Amino acid sequence: MGGGGNGDVRKLHWVAWETVATPKDKGGLGVSRLFDCNRALISKWLWRCVSEKKSMWKGIINAIHCSKRKWDMFPINGSYSSGWINIVKEGYKLKVNGSSFIRLIKCEVGNGEYSRFWVDDWAPFGVLKEGFPALFKLEVNKHCAVCERLTKVGDTLVNIWSWKKHPSTPEEVQQMLTLLSLLQQVRFKQGADLWKWGGHPSGSFSVAVVRNWLASSRPVVNQVYFDWCKWVPIKCNIFMWRLLMKRLPTKVALLKRNILIDDSRCAFCGDGDDEVDHVFTGCAFAASVWNGILGWLGIPNYFSFSVSDLGNMHKIDGLSATRKDTIRGMVMVCCWRIWRARNDVVFNHRRSNVVEVAAEVKAFGFLWFSNRHKDFVKDWKGWSNVMLL
């Protein structure tokens, strides 16, 4: 994550792309990777193949790829060159924590018309062709539906078999006894068969859900937990996210990246170095702004020595959830305004005063928050002070 750049100008990248593409709950920015988006779109074809009961394209796929030698959930015939083969192979490759996308597709059997007895994953004890291979070899119609092998008579499930020969070997007899015992535990729901995807707690499928599922396998990239605030503009949230990681283009940070800087001192006071902890907490200008804002928020005795203290300011004990949310958002807005004031000095040679910066922060907080928590404005007398500016 940097300042853009193009073919002629190469700019600095302040945050690694791997961090940017990591979910927010693991310290990243939550930007989707093209790989995840592409694979999620591919997976939609597999989901449509099982969930759409009757469609012309599905009939064509079955007519071309159904084989007498392969009986998987998704048919592929290697003798044909087809994009469908690549889609199925990609479905088996997509794995998170050892579970492939295809293995998470399951069926809740209703009437049993559109779920296959041996091939599909409908039983609570797994795919039957894998659990009972000896019996599967004896099956005449390996693509038979559940309703063709199980029918409900009253409250009892009756088995209807079609064998090449009756199970007779010890292995076949043992598997038959085990299967019959397990089938007695099966309970069907009312209505049609319902397909679910196990990658989401609700069982629902969508491209966005699969994309998030793929991203969930990434490790935590940022040990500094960041609380995102919904009522503050996204640019302020992203700015605070970068600030807590100390990924802002301060003069000291530029020097560390071998960028020549004539003067690395703070643009506000000139006493300390231009680095994040000093600019936002140690500088006299920033300290004066915080005194005005914190007094207005009703927490005048809070002292911060680093940007991590600013990120934890809303975690003060005894505060309600609404007020914590307010403080978190106001801290973001204040940091954003201090950084703008700093850039005005560095690039525009325009120096803001403390009263001007504090007034803008208070006005922003009042306008945004009062529209979302109108009752809270009446309870917090500190909000009325903004009207005196």
Rank of each mutant, 00 (worst) to 15 (best):
N385D: 15
F125E: 04
P167W: 01
F125L: 09
I160E: 15
N291M: 14
K44V: 02
R242V: 05
V220L: 15
K381V: 12
F35C: 15
N111T: 09
V127E: 03
K152H: 07
I61V: 15
I87K: 05
V357N: 06
I64L: 11
I85M: 14
F303S: 12
S100R: 13
I316S: 07
V127N: 09
Y80N: 11
I234G: 01
K142I: 01
S99V: 11
S308D: 14
A321P: 02
K246M: 05
N6D: 13
G7N: 14
V31F: 13
N222W: 04
M330W: 01
V289K: 01
T250H: 07
D72K: 10
F132Q: 05
Q185L: 15
C107F: 06
C107N: 03
P75K: 05
G131F: 02
G112N: 10
S352T: 04
V289E: 00
Y225Q: 12
D277Q: 03
C144V: 08
D227V: 10
N291P: 07
K54P: 06
K58T: 00
N237V: 02
S206I: 04
K324R: 14
V153T: 12
C229Q: 07
I338T: 00
R372P: 00
W118E: 04
E172Q: 11
I64C: 09
P133Q: 02
W118I: 05
D36M: 10
R257G: 07
F364H: 06
P133Y: 06
R149Q: 10
L46I: 11
R103H: 13
V15Y: 10
S308T: 12
A358F: 06
K251G: 00
W122S: 07
V346N: 08
V361I: 14
S168C: 13
G83S: 13
V279N: 05
V146R: 10
Q185E: 15
F132V: 05
Q223I: 12
K137D: 12
I64K: 11
K142L: 02
H278F: 01
L135S: 02
L94A: 06
W17P: 00
H314W: 11
A321H: 12
E18A: 15
G91C: 06
G154R: 04
I85Y: 09
W161R: 09
K152V: 13
D263I: 04
Q184R: 11
N222A: 04
W161I: 03
P167E: 05
L248I: 15
G30C: 04
S216P: 08
T169L: 10
G198T: 00
S82R: 04
V209T: 11
F268P: 00
D379K: 13
S51C: 09
E172H: 03
E130G: 10
D36T: 10
I64N: 08
A215G: 06
R328L: 02
A359V: 14
L367P: 08
V357H: 10
N97K: 15
W383Y: 07
N212A: 13
S99R: 15
C269G: 08
G272V: 00
A267F: 09
